[in-house]
Design a protein around this nucleic acid. Sequence first.
DNA 1: CATTCGGTTTGAATCGTTTCAACCAGACCG
DNA 2: CGGTCTGGTTGAAACGATTCAAACCGAATG
Lengths: 337, 337
Amino acid sequence: MGGAAGIKDVARAAGVSVGTVSNVINRPEVVGEETRARVQAAIDRLGYVRSESARQLRSGSSRIIGLLVLDLGNPFFVSVARGAERAARAQGLGVMVCNSAQRPADEADYLALFAEQRVRGVLLTPADAEGSGAAVLRRHDVPFVLVDRLAPGIEACSVSVDDVQGGSLAAAHLLAGGHRRIAFAGGRHRLQQVADRRSGALAALEGSGAELVDLEVAGLDVAAGRDAGARLLGMLPRPTAVFCANDLLALGVLQAAFAAGLRVPEDLAIVGYDDIEFAAAAAVPLTSVRQPAEAMGRTAVELLAEETGGGAHRHRQVVFEPELVVRSSTLSAPRTA
Amino acid sequence: MGGAAGIKDVARAAGVSVGTVSNVINRPEVVGEETRARVQAAIDRLGYVRSESARQLRSGSSRIIGLLVLDLGNPFFVSVARGAERAARAQGLGVMVCNSAQRPADEADYLALFAEQRVRGVLLTPADAEGSGAAVLRRHDVPFVLVDRLAPGIEACSVSVDDVQGGSLAAAHLLAGGHRRIAFAGGRHRLQQVADRRSGALAALEGSGAELVDLEVAGLDVAAGRDAGARLLGMLPRPTAVFCANDLLALGVLQAAFAAGLRVPEDLAIVGYDDIEFAAAAAVPLTSVRQPAEAMGRTAVELLAEETGGGAHRHRQVVFEPELVVRSSTLSAPRTA
DNA sequence: CATTCGGTTTGAATCGTTTCAACCAGACCG
DNA sequence: CGGTCTGGTTGAAACGATTCAAACCGAATG
């Protein structure tokens, strides 16, 4: 009756003061054996759960951290979220996952929500190149860590993967496979990650005589890949390989190739990026550039903890190494130039 | 300086009382034109954001709802989350998405977190058959809506899909395709959804002379499907078709079939469940039973809003109809028995 | 001129915790 | 025996908003 039981009710039931109840909950070691048991019994009996808002109001610190990702439909980010959640839980924190869907407006909305909640901190994969999201967080003194994005000029921690090197790995692999005309599905996308992967590929091909053909995409999902794949097949001369800015695009391209009766990798070699589970699970398992997604999520939480942990804090940029995972989609015998 | 600006600072800056500032924020229509402008200016100038915890403490109601899903790695639940988020945002609410990964222990942890937060309500896809999650929510008076699960005996709202009918659709389709020996990848899984799909299939085959072969799975993901697929191929006589409890399993089976050199659907027809994006995007697009995932998320939020909206509330069970989407993985010419 | 009235604004009480200085009782010390 | 510790416990003051009864004020009414 009368709503949920409060700390006062527990105190009365246990015949003790509210301060003691609070101690039982937060610093059990300081309260006497017998008292603790009596209070605990009262808590259980009344089904008391403390009010997080009251706790937070008084103590000033929140127990949840916000995670704002670019696209929850991309399993890569789901893995990042999983890593973050796990690490957070190890510290007794909760994670609020939100999806900006690459829309700066949605990003702003969610950041405002986080600010109102006074979250402990935010893990952010910025939706725009300008870093306006970071700016608003900075303005409100919300600690944050950039995820999957190096902080250029922005003074903050970040975890990222060397996308230039990743692009380079992919292109070098295709080059070694004898390919001389390679498409890049991703075109001149505004996302920094995509641009970096492209420039890495470009660098790897430098001076090899092979050329990189830009293939524009409307988005970074399977449908966009299917569309780009269809266009790719119509090119003359047709590239013998395609490097896709992420696995979703690659799966779309693969599907378009199958629909057109092409063999993969004989007629078209495909390299994806992210190494999501569905890449290995595709009918022709995809060669892909793996990023340590869970580790990124975990590390981001750790950096945040470090930053909010008090004491002097020096922002750090953690950069992971990408890794090429070779599978059937590029495994044809090397063709002679 | 000295931390974030509070409502008092704004009041002082605007030369007005705290009550008025609160009114400007929550009931702008009651405050005078000129005053409102002055206060608003102060708010902007100080970069004031209200403290959600203080608001919630006093007003009693939270602005976030918890969503606890079975598996964020399954795009089906990601779609549910997307639908829920969208609907919630339309009502000015936020969604906290968490992943129980089918572990009752994790489910309990997250529900405890939700309870502490005093969330507006919870959308729950129960991890165990006993409904212990629902019980704990009930005990703490947290309103909740069951998602993807009919509430049997549990007194609550729910949104679900008729899984029996879905299973039936799938099996009937395979039957019409001439198949007489059909495997069910999902076996006797503890999840109610899986059991229902199986019994629907069983019912459809009743009296047709066709038989359903149970194929146990270790989980409900791609890896489990790959494993089950490998076992399937060794069966004698080998079933000519397989109905999978979800698309992740189906993708795994498809991959196993390809690895063994089988043609789909000529040698093995495959039907999945959920119709996730990757089903259509598979090299051999998968026939699948579609569930209106986004609509489910949206409806769940609406039911919750109805329940918490005050006034008399009668629990409702919304049941959606599944829909068979036929694609290449079953499109062979009907074989004669 | 005294009242009433609607529209604004005020100020204090309140929400459920945490925190901290003060208090207490018994043990120990000199 | 007085004084200092020590381990437990207390009670009241925050925390930052919302809410609401009361005060205010100028205009309109009787």
